[in-house]
Design a protein around this nucleic acid. Structure first.
Length: 212
DNA sequence: ACTGAGATATTCT
DNA sequence: GAATATCTCAGTC
């Protein structure tokens, strides 16, 4: 196995979570599903900074069966249910440093047909949100929660990497804005990409915000 | 195109 | 019983 086309543990090694969240933009999230290779370019991420981040599940060191994956090694998958949705996170720091990145949106590049079928929606509605992208990929259980991405059918591919022309850092979605960490700009987006959750059509760019 | 309410599952107080 | 790292639909513009 080469180390150039996959983002494994070395991708996370020794970098702050905020930096990893930005570095993931433009890489490809791939899933080797029973229906074949499916995935797309990551266009939106959020960083959750552990015990001092009021919006993080590990705030104040909360540790339970639910939050356990965050305390494991970098590259551990944290797949959990929020209301009727599954959310897909990757742990970014060494053992017992409970930080992670939430993948919030992708731009489909592999098996768009399958995603349309999985979602029953068209256009950007296919993958422009964390729960939506899980549905689109066909993730409907927590089988790979607590598993290292290297031992899972998931992969961060650096093979067809694109470079955002501009990365914007804005406050995170769905966090209590009145809490201490509520306004921190820890949500990172590829400016101008139409698959950004809750984006406005007027902000979309024809090149989707990628460098040429 | 944009806004706001309601539904949904799980965890923690 | 309250809170939550969300989605969808119906109403309005």
């Amino acid at each position: 196995m080469t180390t150039t086309s996959f983002a494994t543990a070395s991708f996370f090694d020794g970098r702050p979570t905020t930096e990893i969240a930005q570095a993931l933009l433009g890489t490809t999230l791939l899933y080797r599903s029973n229906h074949g290779l499916i995935g797309g370019l990551i266009v939106e991420t959020e960083a959750y900074l552990g015990t001092h981040d009021t919006a993080a599940h590990a705030y104040k060191g909360r540790r339970s069966k639910f939050t356990e994956p965050l305390y494991r090694a970098a590259g551990t998958l944290y797949i959990y249910q929020l209301r009727a949705n599954l959310l897909f996170d990757i742990v970014t720091q060494p053992l017992n440093v409970p930080e992670g990145v939430l993948i919030r949106a992708i731009e489909p590049t592999y098996a768009l047909d399958q995603m349309l079928t999985n979602r029953g929606k068209s256009g950007v509605q296919v993958t422009n949100g964390p729960g939506k992208l899980a549905q689109a990929l066909g993730i409907h259980d927590q089988t790979y929660n607590l598993v290292s991405i290297d031992d899972s059918p998931f992969e961060i591919s650096l093979k067809d990497v694109r470079h955002p022309r501009q990365i914007k850092a804005v406050p995170r979605v769905g966090v209590n804005p009145d809490a201490a960490s509520g306004q921190l700009p820890l949500r990172f987006i590829v400016a101008g990409n139409p698959y950004i959750s809750d984006s406005r059509k007027r902000d979309w760019q024809s090149d989707h915000g990628w460098q040429a």
